[in-house]
Amino acid sequence: MAIDSAEDQRYTGVVWHTTNFVRTFPLLTAGLAMLLALLLFIVIGPIFVPEEDTRVGYVIPDQSPSREHLLGTNTMGQDMLAVIIYGTPLTLQIGLIAGVIGLVVGTIFGFVAGFFGGFWDNLFRGAADVALTIPGFLILVVIASTLRGATDVMTQALIVSSLAWMFPTRTIRSQVLSMRERGYIQIARRSGMGNLEIIGREMVPNLLPYLGASFVLAVITAILASIGLEALGLGPQNEPTMGMTIYWGMYYTAIIRDMWWWWFPPIVVITYIFATLYIISAGLDQFANPRLRRRI
């Protein structure tokens, strides 16, 4: 074999690293690729489809898919392709906002419980365990119905974020608990670091993969709760989120009117979002826990 020039080596280096990453973390790569495809769809879609098409009564209602309306139109006179293109980011937005809130709250709870232990541990772990067993969805129904459906995307995100903190709390707590006794934490403590400094400089960097996985789980929980509420009609009334699209489809009996283009595309989008998130979360698990790498 010929001796590579420096240029070649750098090139093969990049390729080697990429293929190596793909081989070591196939799930994470697949998940991120699916996410990228989704983001491209959201970014490129609006170039071809004007936002006006999502307005109620803007197009002729009840048309089956045609060249003009690729996914047909619904009874409310909206173009379904436009609804999907402009509604998908709204659903993702609800999930992301609620996921961030859930992650921040859950991480704080988890750290307090794991780091300080004792009473705090009993309080926060207990709260998370109890909140996980009860069907919290019904509490959301109580809240959302009391608001009389006067919600927008932001309020919806806030409501569902109250279900998104439990998984992060549990994950972070158990990791902090095992990390607390490790050698490097002991050394940091002996060398006079304060609690906050230990948490910020020693623990959080080591927890990043777990934080990532918890975040993904929190987003999944939030989106699931959100489309559940929306199926009851308890969502942003004037926004074409995926859950509301399905609600209106049910409301106007889209199934028995054979309007598959009304209810099927949102289901595909939702399933795609969940599959992407599940795969990323499994990929992050592999990333965080090397023992899992060989198995799948």
Binding site: G228, W263, I267, A275
Partner: peptide
């Protein structure tokens, strides 16, 4: 894959195929 579909959305698909 079925596990990634929320329960009630699966219901839609089942109604459409097996009932409708």
């Amino acid at each position: 894959t079925m596990a990634a579909v929320p329960y009630y959305l699966l219901g839609f698909i089942l109604i459409y195929i097996f009932s409708f």
